[in-house]
Nucleic acid binder design. Structure first.
Length: 677
RNA sequence: GGCGAGGUAGCUCAGUUGGUUAGAGCGCAUGAUUCAUAAUCAUGAGGUCGCGGGAUCAUGCCCCGCCCUCGCUACCA
């Protein structure tokens, strides 16, 4: 039915500047792992690839901040990530890293092939350069005063005080973070991948050829393609990364987005010399499991790279998930708002599968979703413990009690028995259908139906009553219950691998393939099962409260950190201040600037004149609200053209931590044009 | 502002090419039951399917406008 002989599953490479959290797991690794285990169980040829993404500017910055080397940073987090994945039971066939020699070779070679084929454009532009350190500076390497809030240590790409995103050229008094010197502008040459060349092809391949992709994925792609594609730089001026393998490119490395997806290829190479089978044979089906932030790279850019190279296969599907929130707020590494996998593994030992279950049941498949500890507890207690664990326990307790742990032979089956056994095959079909279409939430639900089926059968048959009147009949009932239990050990294998291993131990039963699922004779009469233990244990309120408290503490710490007032700027002379001509004024007209979110066009009576000022306050005020508002206005600021309107001056606003803006205005009776000093 | 994805019971989600009383799980209520980790099983309450128009014999599903959430993007003197 499908023309493919094998499947290559890739999962987004986690960035090695921090540990992995439940957001990564729910969006990428848990679904990818379930799918990989499912295919393996079906006996298909599968390769499941993972690895750490270890290049890029943030890692070099972190290294600098901690006074160590980028390699030390990535060694630390790669080790941590790899270890927690392994303990958690993400069944990678290989977990590699982009700092590995094999990756440097592979990425380098890939670049070289495109370079030799003339697939790049060369372009020269001006960028900041540190003369003392003798290198170009990425935006993150420039620090200076934020033009908006005056925070002195703003980075070239973003001000961490007010959150504004910036260009390095916006900064007042830019300084190099390497030497502290003032950087100069200097020309630099880079290579670009002309994505525009692939537009017609992408249109056909995705928009025509892959209408089955998830709506979120397809929509994003369409948006990008319809919006027109531009050439994208594939190199950067940086020391940390894969060196650009052409002459005259000293001090340049491959840009991370070019480098990282090639990591999938390198990882495959690291695993097997037979890697080409997975990457170059059209009978291989490639799947990229990613989060929604990665859609454009995996659907547009990486395929364009592969296409440009010419000898690689393309992804057949890209099942991207949305984002997972935590207790109502966005997960954030820098704000420590996350449930970290390595901490979970320590605090909930032996409960790896519980987290997998919760994250699958709550997977952000079609929209962002919320993880709460309360929900985690409920899923564990009322589904895993009460439905699945309890059924298994009931069956095994009864078997031990009545038959000393030996599987009884079934007698003549009644209609209800037949129905129940037939339902196993039905549930298998439902689970399969959901898994085949990447509906993991639904798949898990139909697997759980099997345990419900057992509970209901048991409740209706009431063997504990029948045993008194018709002991022969009870043999049939428990025989069937045991077959259901054995089937459970198969159907849950992709989702709850550790637990199913445990269950097979209880049943004294070997691991069976997916194809055996639905059979009514998995356990032979006379087979001896073991004494039951508990499959899952209840999670008490205290354990949950502890986690909630931990998050509350984080929240408090964040608020405190936010409450810290930006430090004072260095002294200036009175003359510096005196240069500023600040006056009282009144807003006499206001309207929204078309096609902007934040801008209002204000007409201000300054006493001197009436003038136009464009101000970024539209998120705090409606135009009608501000008419008549008294203001303080800097009148001798050089005019600046904004969105086609000449802005003559600047309104003084006070801004709180939430970005709310308040007018700084005269507090008593005073006319327009009064000098403020 | 532009583009994309969402907005369905208290919570988490399904709803096929528009077709009779809109579904599931959890939670809640009531009942049954005791083999089982007070677990299970049954029944029930609970929804102007974001809002307003329109096309249709008929729409949660189609068209138009608006509102809200998330992502990408532009703007913040």
């Amino acid at each position: 039915m499908n023309p493919f002989k094998r499947t290559l599953i890739t999962s987004a490479l986690p960035y090695a500047n921090g540990p992995v959290h439940i957001g990564h797991l729910a969006g990428v690794y848990v679904p990818a792992d379930i799918y990989a285990r499912y295919l393996r169980l079906k006996g298909e040829e599968v390769l499941f690839i993972g690895g750490s993404d270890e290049h890029g500017v943030p890692i070099t910055l972190k290294a600098k901040k901690e006074g160590t080397t980028p390699q030390a940073i990535v060694d630390k987090y790669h080790g941590m990530i790899k270890d927690s994945f392994q303990r958690f039971g993400i069944s990678f066939d290989v977990y590699s890293r982009t700092s590995a020699p094999v990756h440097h070779e592979t990425a380098s070679e890939f670049f070289k092939v495109l370079y030799d084929k003339g697939e790049f454009i060369e372009q020269t532009s001006e960028q900041f350069f540190d003369q003392e350190a003798n290198q170009f500076l990425a935006d993150r390497y420039i620090t200076g005063t934020c033009p908006k809030c005056g925070f002195e240590k703003a980075y070239g790409d973003q001000c961490e005080s007010c959150g504004t995103s910036l260009n390095a050229t916006d900064l007042i008094n830019p300084k190099s973070m390497l030497s502290g010197n003032v950087p100069v502008m200097k020309e630099t040459k880079h290579w670009y991948l002309p994505l525009d060349r692939y537009e017609p092809w992408l249109k056909e391949w995705i928009l025509e050829g892959h209408k089955e992709w998830k709506p979120n994925v397809y929509g994003q792609c369409k948006s990008w393609i319809d919006g027109g594609l531009n050439p994208r730089a594939v190199t950067r001026d940086l020391e940390w990364g894969v060196p650009v393998p052409v002459e005259g490119a000293e001090g340049k490395v491959l840009y991370v987005w070019f480098d990282a997806p090639i990591g999938y290829i390198s990882a495959t190479k690291e695993l097997t010399p037979d890697w080409k089978k997975y990457w170059k044979d059209p009978e291989t089906r490639m799947l990229h499991f990613i989060g929604k932030d990665n859609i454009v790279f995996h659907c547009i850019i990486f395929p364009a790279m592969l296409k440009a190279e010419g000898s690689f296969i393309l992804p057949d599907n890209v099942p991207a998930n949305e984002f997972l929130n935590l207790e109502g707020d966005k997960i954030s590494t820098s704000r420590n708002w996350a449930v970290w996998l390595h901490e979970y593994l320590e605090e909930f030992p032996g409960k790896e599968d519980v987290l997998k279950y919760t994250l699958t049941a709550n997977a952000p498949e079609t929209k962002d979703n919320d993880f709460t500890w309360k929900d985690f507890q409920a899923r564990n207690n009322s589904e895993l413990v009460a439905i699945l664990g309890n059924f298994v326990n009931r069956v095994l307790v009864l078997t031990n009690k009545y038959y000393d742990g030996v599987v009884p032979a079934a007698g003549a089956l009644e209609a209800r028995d037949e129905e129940t056994l037939a339902a196993l095959l039905q549930l298998r079909a439902e689970t399969e259908k959901a898994l085949d279409t990447f509906h993991f939430h639904e798949a898990l639900k139909s697997a759980m139906e099997m345990a419900r089926l057992g509970n209901k059968y048991l409740a209706d048959m009431e063997p504990w009553k029948v045993i008194k009147s018709d002991p022969e009949r009870v043999k049939s009932i428990l025989h069937i219950c045991l077959q259901i239990t054995a089937n459970l050990s198969i159907v849950f294998e992709p989702f709850l691998p550790y637990t199913m291993e445990k269950l097979r131990g209880f049943l004294n039963f070997g691991k069976m393939g997916w194809n055996e699922l639905g059979r009514r004779d998995l356990l032979a009469a006379g087979h001896r099962v073991n004494a039951p233990e508990l499959l899952f244990e209840k999670i008490e309120d205290e354990a949950i409260q502890k986690q909630v408290d931990k998050l509350l503490a984080t929240k408090k710490a964040n608020e405190l950190a936010q409450a810290t007032v930006a430090p004072a700027k260095p002294h200036i002379e009175y003359d510096d201040f005196a240069k500023m001509d600040i006056r009282t004024g009144t807003i006499i007209a206001a309207e929204k600037v078309a096609k902007t979110k934040k801008l209002l066009k204000l007409t201000i009576r300054t006493g001197i004149d009436e003038r136009t000022v464009v101000s970024g306050i539209a998120e705090s005020y409606e135009p009608e609200q501000v008419i008549g508002q008294r203001v303080s206005i800097l009148v001798n600021l050089a005019p600046k053209n904004l969105k086609g309107i000449e802005s003559q001056g600047m309104i003084l606003m006070a801004e709180d931590k939430d970005g709310r803006l308040i007018f700084v205005a005269p507090s008593g009776e005073i006319g327009d044009g009064a000098e403020i000093r």
